[in-house]
Computed example of a mutant assay.
Amino acid sequence: MMRIDSHQHFWRYTPQDYRWISDDMAVLKQDLLPETLRLTLQRHDIQGTILVQACSSAGETRWLLELAEQTDVVRAVTGWVDLSSPGLQQELEAISHPLLRGFRHQIQDETSPAQWLADPAINAGVRQLQRQEYVYEILVTHRHLTEAVQFAERHDQYSLVLDHFGKPDLSLGAAHWKQQVAPLAALKHVSCKLSGLLTEPRPAGMSARDLLPYFEAALEIFGTERLMFGSDWPVCLLADADENPWDLCEQATATLSIDEQAAIYGGNACTVYRLQPLAITGNDS
């Protein structure tokens, strides 16, 4: 079974570029590059990854693409571009690359995520991306899932992907999250990454095992054909030492069929991001 990690990051850390990395995230305040991740991928039998932007910079996107060219494990890149730019088409042409398959913006960090999602210039930019068959990844928290549904309804000409379960409010439980995200799951062009839960704020006493109902809810409303495993490495390093996203997702999918597991761990990512077939060898991980 081919295994793809649909969501990981690399960066050369500078405080001005990665302002979202706060003082209590010391483990992330360092350069985190392919050689650091490689052993982890081998340990969990991951043959390929999708490398995702972590700051709002076209320069970072160019660097990620250069890094991807030099790194056999990276199969696609989700970058960043200024969607509201009058010169968007020229910017897309300037960063065009065979490994660039999608874009993302950290909407959750906007002063008003709802206003950003409704902005006419932003929406025109997303329409342009979809015309050129770029995936768009939606990064919002539970506070703006309603607006994310409206956004997704407007943009149904190509694939959209919800990052990190839409960052649920874990204090309200999986049933509440399921109700929130069901309208998004009803849109067949929207997939969801099974990622990020371990680092969302938890009520006191909530263990990793207590997160399994969120996976169960996601399986029920998205189905195995629209879910993708993502580690969110290195952000997942913020979880407790005895917790990791690979083990958590394996627990959540243990009762699924081989074909269903294969879809979540690689098949769906290959379809959505148009990944090239993997030449799986003993050293290609």
Score class of each variant (00 low, 15 high):
2 M>R: 14
8 Q>Y: 04
11 W>E: 00
16 Q>S: 15
17 D>R: 14
18 Y>R: 10
20 W>N: 12
21 I>Q: 04
37 L>Q: 01
38 R>I: 04
38 R>K: 14
49 T>M: 07
52 V>I: 14
52 V>W: 01
57 S>Y: 09
57 S>Q: 07
62 R>E: 11
69 E>L: 08
70 Q>E: 15
71 T>R: 03
71 T>K: 05
75 R>D: 07
90 Q>P: 00
94 A>F: 04
100 L>H: 05
113 P>G: 08
116 W>S: 05
117 L>H: 01
120 P>A: 12
122 I>R: 10
122 I>M: 09
122 I>P: 02
123 N>M: 11
124 A>Q: 15
126 V>I: 15
127 R>Q: 14
127 R>E: 14
128 Q>H: 08
128 Q>R: 12
130 Q>T: 09
136 Y>I: 02
138 I>D: 03
141 T>N: 14
143 R>I: 04
147 E>A: 15
156 D>W: 03
159 S>M: 08
160 L>F: 11
164 H>Y: 03
164 H>F: 01
167 K>R: 15
172 L>H: 11
176 H>Q: 14
177 W>C: 02
180 Q>W: 01
185 A>E: 02
186 A>D: 11
187 L>I: 07
188 K>C: 09
190 V>F: 02
190 V>A: 02
194 L>A: 00
194 L>H: 02
195 S>I: 04
202 R>N: 03
203 P>L: 05
207 S>I: 07
210 D>M: 08
213 P>H: 10
216 E>A: 15
224 T>D: 13
228 M>L: 15
244 N>K: 08
248 L>A: 06
255 T>Y: 11
257 S>N: 12
263 A>K: 10
263 A>N: 10
275 L>G: 05
279 A>V: 14
285 S>V: 13
